[in-house]
């Protein structure tokens, strides 16, 4: 009856009933944090890639420096800097803000590089041809370059976005009550790992669809050689 005992330890129905509202609350926080990160991260990344395509030297240096730094730093390090170091500069922020801002900046850095690679992959002739038909630089970018570039960028972008959004769990390190944070404190309170199991299930519910979507996107947009 080892298995029974194992099930009773890791999935104790009574404890599950008591603590699932905590996990559900955490689920909402993770969802909000994830959506906010995706929205701001991708928007900022796309904006930076577009600015970079105007080839202004100093600005390009700044963008590359930003993208490099945030790709080199571990995301948890960035969260720790914002949460624990910024207060010394008189800029305290909530755990949610620190996590959201960190992950957004990291996602912006990675997505800028991916969008940029997409833009670069479009032959220069396309740009010249569109300009010569009388389109403005902006029209060319939006109507000619971006639709093609986005197609190339979608598979790596999806995978990167999933990977960084999973980083919402890092918020628990700065005591944010998202899924992991609330599951962890509930399981210490209950003296039983059942809340952690619930948390794990919650993450699977949230991310399995994304991973499957990523898989589908990879075959759908596969580069035909």
């Amino acid at each position: 009856m080892e298995l029974d005992r194992l099930a009773f330890t890791f999935f104790n129905p009574e404890i599950a009933r008591e603590y699932w509202p905590d996990i559900a609350k955490g689920f909402v926080v993770t969802l909000e944090l994830g959506l906010a990160t995706i929205a701001t991260g991708l928007a900022l990344g796309l904006a930076l890639a577009l600015v970079r395509s105007f080839q202004m030297r100093v600005i390009n240096w700044v963008i590359v420096l930003f993208a490099d730094a945030l790709r080199a730093l571990p995301p948890l390090m960035v969260i720790i800097i914002l949460f624990f170091a910024f207060p010394y500069a008189g800029l305290p922020m909530s755990a949610f803000t620190a996590t959201w801002l960190s992950l957004s900046l990291v996602l912006a850095a990675f997505s800028e590089e991916i969008f940029w690679a997409g833009i670069v992959s479009i032959p220069r002739g396309q740009y010249e041809a569109s300009r010569s038909t009388g389109m403005s630089a902006w029209q060319t970018l939006v109507n000619v370059i971006l639709p093609q570039a986005v197609r190339i960028t979608i598979p790596p972008l999806t995978n990167r976005t999933i990977a960084i959004t999973k980083g919402t769990a890092l918020g628990s390190v700065v005591a944010l009550a998202e899924i992991l944070g609330s599951a962890h404190s509930a399981s210490s309170l209950a003296g039983n790992p059942t809340p952690l199991t619930l948390g794990a299930i919650a993450y699977l519910l949230l991310f399995i669809p994304f991973v499957l979507f990523g898989r589908w996107v990879e075959t759908r947009f596969a580069w035909k050689q």
Binding site: I162, K166, A169, L170, I179, L180, Y203, F207, I208, V211
Partner: peptide, 9 residues
């Protein structure tokens, strides 16, 4: 399964 799981979890 393991790509859906945040590593910290």
């Amino acid at each position: 399964f393991f790509r859906a799981f945040p590593p910290l979890v």
